[in-house]
Amino acid sequence: MGKITFYEDRAFQGRSYECTTDCPNLQPYFSRCNSIRVESGCWMIYERPNYQGHQYFLRRGEYPDYQQWMGLSDSIRSCCLIPP
């Protein structure tokens, strides 16, 4: 099982949303994503809903700024857990 936490502000500040399963639409939970903490598993995150747009592969670790995962913007709208 994986676990990823999205934060609206840099350095793990602001409103957060924790996810443990695939989520095709993160828009209801936060308006922007400036930092991420991957506590377990590997995740693919996407800039648009329904697994569309630019995608980024994240391993376990801390990403205090969206540029840390080579993001082009602070828009993350869907995510899925990559099976081991």
Rank of each mutant, 00 (worst) to 15 (best):
L81T: 10
Y17A: 08
F12P: 01
P49G: 14
S16G: 06
S75G: 11
G2D: 11
L81D: 09
L26M: 11
Y51V: 14
Q13H: 14
F6G: 00
I4K: 00
Q27L: 14
M1K: 11
F6Q: 00
C33G: 01
T21D: 06
N50F: 14
K3R: 11
S75D: 06
E18T: 07
S73Y: 06
F12N: 04
Y51L: 13
P24C: 02
R48A: 12
N50L: 12
D22W: 01
Y51C: 15
P24T: 10
F12K: 01
Y17Q: 06
T21M: 08
F12I: 03
S75I: 13
S35P: 00
E8K: 05
L26N: 06
P24Y: 07
T21L: 09
F30G: 04
C23V: 14
Y17V: 11
R10Y: 15
Y56F: 00
C23Q: 09
M1D: 02
C23M: 10
S75C: 14
Q68H: 02
M1S: 03
Y51I: 03
R10V: 13
E18Y: 08
C19Q: 05
F30L: 05
A11D: 12
A11K: 14
P24A: 08
G14C: 00
S35R: 01
Q27G: 11
C42R: 01
Y51N: 15
G53L: 09
C23P: 01
P83L: 15
P24L: 11
R48P: 13
Q27W: 04
S31Y: 03
Q13C: 13
R15M: 08
E8Y: 04
L81V: 11
L81N: 10
K3F: 15
P24K: 06
S35C: 02
G14E: 03
G53H: 08
R48M: 07
I4C: 04
P49W: 07
Q13E: 12
T21I: 04
I4M: 06
P49D: 14
I4F: 01
M70V: 15
Y7W: 11
P49N: 09
M44T: 03
L26K: 01
F12Y: 04
C79R: 02
N25V: 08
S16T: 07
R15F: 04
G14H: 03
E62P: 02
E18C: 10
I45N: 02
L81R: 09
S16H: 15
K3C: 12
M1Y: 06
G2F: 03
E8R: 05
C19H: 08
G14D: 02
C19V: 12
T21H: 03
C19R: 09
G53F: 07
Q52W: 06
M44I: 05
I4W: 00
W69R: 15
T20W: 12
S16Y: 14
S75R: 08
E62W: 15
G41S: 02
T20S: 11
R10H: 05
D22N: 01
M1R: 06
C23N: 04
P84R: 12
D22C: 01
D22L: 04
L81S: 09
S75F: 06
D22T: 02
Y7T: 00
A11Q: 15
Y7I: 02
R15C: 13
G2C: 11
G14I: 01
R10E: 10
L26R: 01
S35H: 01
C19W: 09
D9A: 11
S75H: 14
E18P: 06
T20K: 06
F12R: 03
N25D: 10
E18R: 07
Y7F: 14
F12D: 01
S75P: 09
S16E: 13
I76T: 00
N25E: 11
I4H: 01
E18G: 07
G53N: 10
L81W: 09
T20Q: 04
G14A: 02
C19F: 14
R15W: 06
G14T: 02
P84S: 04
Q52C: 05
Q52S: 11
P49I: 15
I36G: 05
Q27V: 10
A11Y: 10
C23G: 11
Y17W: 07
C42Y: 03
Y51H: 15
C23R: 08
P24H: 12
Q27H: 03
F6N: 00
V38I: 13
D22A: 03
E18H: 04
N34S: 04
Y7A: 01
M1I: 02
Y17M: 14
L81H: 04
L26Q: 15
T20P: 11
D9S: 14
Q52V: 12
G2E: 09
C19I: 14
A11C: 14
C19E: 07
T5H: 05
T5N: 02
G2M: 04
G61V: 09
E39D: 04
H54R: 01
G14Q: 02
T21W: 04
Q27S: 12
S35I: 00
C23Y: 11
L81I: 09
M1V: 06
G61D: 13
P49L: 14
S16C: 05
F6A: 00
G14V: 02
R10S: 14
Q27I: 07
R15S: 14
Y51G: 09
P83T: 03
P49R: 11
V38D: 01
C23H: 13
G61R: 01
Q27K: 13
D22V: 04
I4A: 03
Y17S: 09
R10P: 14
F12V: 02
T20R: 11
Y56C: 02
Y7G: 00
K3A: 12
G2R: 11
G2T: 07
F6M: 06
I36A: 03
E8N: 14
Y7E: 00
Q13T: 08
F6K: 00
R15P: 14
E8A: 11
L26I: 13
G53Q: 11
S31F: 02
S35D: 00
Q27P: 12
Y17D: 02
D9Y: 09
P49V: 13
Y46C: 02
Y17L: 06
F12S: 02
I36M: 15
I4G: 00
Y17C: 06
I82V: 03
A11E: 11
S35Y: 01
I36S: 03
E8W: 02
K3P: 04
R48H: 10
E18W: 05
Y17I: 10
T21V: 06
E8P: 01
P49F: 09
G2P: 03
G53C: 03
R10Q: 13
D22Q: 04
N25T: 09
C19P: 10
L26V: 13
G53A: 11
G2S: 07
S75A: 08
C33Y: 05
I76C: 15
Q13Y: 10
D9C: 13
A11F: 11
R10G: 14
P24G: 09
L26E: 01
F6V: 04
K3H: 04
K3W: 07
T5K: 06
I4D: 00
S35V: 00
E8T: 07
R15A: 10
K3E: 05
D22S: 05
Q13S: 10
P24Q: 05
R10M: 08
Y7Q: 01
G14M: 03
W69C: 15
G53K: 12
D22I: 03
T5R: 10
N50G: 05
Q52N: 14
L26F: 08
R37L: 00
Y51A: 14
R10N: 13
N50V: 10
R48N: 13
D9W: 10
G2Q: 10
E39G: 01
G71D: 09
Q13P: 01
T20H: 01
Q27T: 12
Q13M: 08
F6I: 03
H54Y: 07
I36T: 04
A11L: 13
K3L: 09
E62L: 12
P24D: 12
R48D: 11
A11V: 07
F12Q: 04
Q52G: 14
S16I: 11
F30R: 15
S75K: 08
T20G: 09
Y46V: 02
N25I: 13
R15L: 12
S35T: 02
M1N: 15
L58F: 15
E8I: 04
T5E: 06
Y17F: 07
P24R: 09
I4E: 00
V38S: 02
G2N: 12
C80Y: 11
T21R: 08
I4Q: 00
N34D: 10
R77S: 14
M1L: 10
D9L: 13
N50H: 14
R48C: 07
S16N: 12
R15K: 12
P24E: 05
Y51K: 15
I76V: 06
R10D: 07
Q52I: 14
Y51E: 15
G2W: 04
G2H: 04
T20V: 08
A11H: 05
S16Q: 07
R15Q: 14
C23D: 12
P24F: 01
G53R: 10
N50A: 12
L81Y: 05
L58S: 01
S40F: 10
D22M: 02
K3M: 13
R48Y: 04
T20M: 10
T21G: 11
D74N: 06
T5V: 09
S16A: 12
T5I: 08
M1A: 04
S75L: 14
E18Q: 06
A11G: 11
N25S: 13
Q13F: 04
